[in-house]
Design a protein around this nucleic acid. Structure first.
Ligand SMILES: [Mn+2]
Ligand SMILES: [Mn+2]
Ligand SMILES: [Mn+2]
Ligand SMILES: [Mn+2]
Lengths: 250, 250
DNA sequence: GTCGTATCTTAGGGCTACCTAAAAATGAGC
DNA sequence: GCTCATTTTTAGGTAGCCCTAAGATACGAC
């Protein structure tokens, strides 16, 4: 008689996460896919599915395909947000390679408390948005990782001063433009969200505000669905929604 | 017949960590202390002690006091380094309070791979040593955590430029001084280590080099043992050892 | 030395999360 | 509609890690 309000174990979180990822691609998950994704035997999957169903996080009946309930989706998104925030920190700030970041994030995500994740996210966004940091700052750090013999960055200061001078005026003068004008791969900072009651409601619920970092991942050929990454979530916006978000490149 | 070369479980790591901390204070640990430190019952401690003894990490015989073997101490130090590196990142960069940092670090330490920990340590030290960052940079970040409505730091740029100009000359001209001249609480960067073969050998084995950050924790009245924190380790240096380390304040 | 309390160990049980082996269901091809 | 390969489930077992209850040991007070 497991308490269905209890916290999920690390293992069950991984099952839920895997189901979410499979469902995102194929609309429904089968036990086999889950077993392969997590590197366990099919028998172990059956057990986990029963536990998740007991907690009302998935729709599950023997021999049927598996889908997430609304609560299950919400839980999975929380886990994936932690995963993505950690991974983003590991790759963009620590400069670790994709694979190590991926594995490290999936191990740590389960123990990461919500408030710490929020701070880590804010920190990662801050460093990317702050004009004092930048590519030379980051490469200075990476140099120091490989050859620790260097003294702290006396050389990088001069280049920085120049860039700062430019940034000081640019930041003030930057003209906000709708998200639809931004090229894929570019990171930008939200300046304002129009139509708060209607189109942009989802964004606001997710914690996207003035100051939040948005990364454009993909723009579909005929413009319609725009894939963006915000606060660890990957989501696709309709053209209309994207138009009501004004940003400046970071 | 548990494989004694296998990785320690998170639970056993916590036992080992607790034993190290107790032994550091009282020279030997008793089951009771461990139980209290970890919030478990004495019966659970006995089981864990048997497992640690099987792996030759502690000296244990029923009803006797518990001490660490050299291998046990080495393992415990690795765990505590991870703990301290995470905690240092949480407090000094993310600005989290002591308690949350402590708890968060102790949850995450077990899943943190060595190379990620190294990077995180390097990053934390880099930010503290880099003259581009500083108190105003950090407080700018903390402002943004509490009130996310702010645009990215247009105001902090002017103050930064002034500080940069000063730093640019200071960094070049900074005169290295022996660690013994530094006041408690001050963080500084290692410039050189003299007598590499003899006194400073321990430090070099720990990975302390030119560029490493050292924090002075405490100087005993008559000068002799100086407590410092380097790379997540708390250690005490003899006056003689400390003299052979030349540093500049960060 | 005996007593009593604090401490530690043993015995037995629950829960999670894996496994293997074997049985059952599914469904595509004929 | 039957057959057979694939997938899923059941049954039964192991290991880790915690618990309670009860028995064993240690040690200071008398
Ligand atoms: Mn995971
Ligand atoms: Mn994950
Ligand atoms: Mn821990
Ligand atoms: Mn710890």
């Amino acid at each position: 008689m497991s308490d269905q309000n209890a916290q999920l174990s690390a293992s069950l979180e991984d099952y839920l996460e895997a189901i979410f990822r499979i469902v995102s691609k194929k609309s429904a998950a089968r036990g086999r896919d889950i077993a392969k994704a997590l590197g366990v035997r099919a028998a172990s999957v059956t057990g986990a599915l029963r536990l998740l169903a007991e907690r009302k996080l998935i729709h599950y009946a023997p021999y049927e395909v598996i889908t997430l309930t609304p609560e299950g989706r919400k839980e999975a998104e929380k886990i994936i947000q932690k995963h993505e925030v950690l991974k983003g920190f590991f790759t963009t700030l620590l400069g670790l390679d994709e694979d190590m970041a991926e594995e490290g994030a999936c191990r740590l995500e389960h123990g990461l408390a919500q408030p710490i994740m929020e701070r880590l996210l804010a920190f990662t966004e801050f460093v990317q948005a702050c004009p004092r940091c930048g590519e030379d700052w980051r490469s200075q750090f990476l140099d120091r990782c490989t050859a620790r013999s260097k003294p702290p960055c006396a050389e990088c200061l001069t280049g920085c001063q120049e860039r700062l001078r430019r940034a000081a005026t640019e930041v003030k003068d930057a003209v906000p433009q709708p998200l639809t004008e931004i090229q894929p791969g570019v990171k930008c900072v939200v300046k304002s969200i129009k139509n708060r009651r209607t189109v942009a409601r989802r964004l606001i619920e997710m914690g996207v505000q003035r100051g939040t970092l948005v990364e454009i991942k993909r723009v579909a050929p005929l413009g319609d669905p725009i894939a963006v990454k915000v606060r660890g979530y990957h989501l696709s916006l309709r053209l209309e929604e994207a138009k009501s978000i004004e940003v400046v490149p970071a």
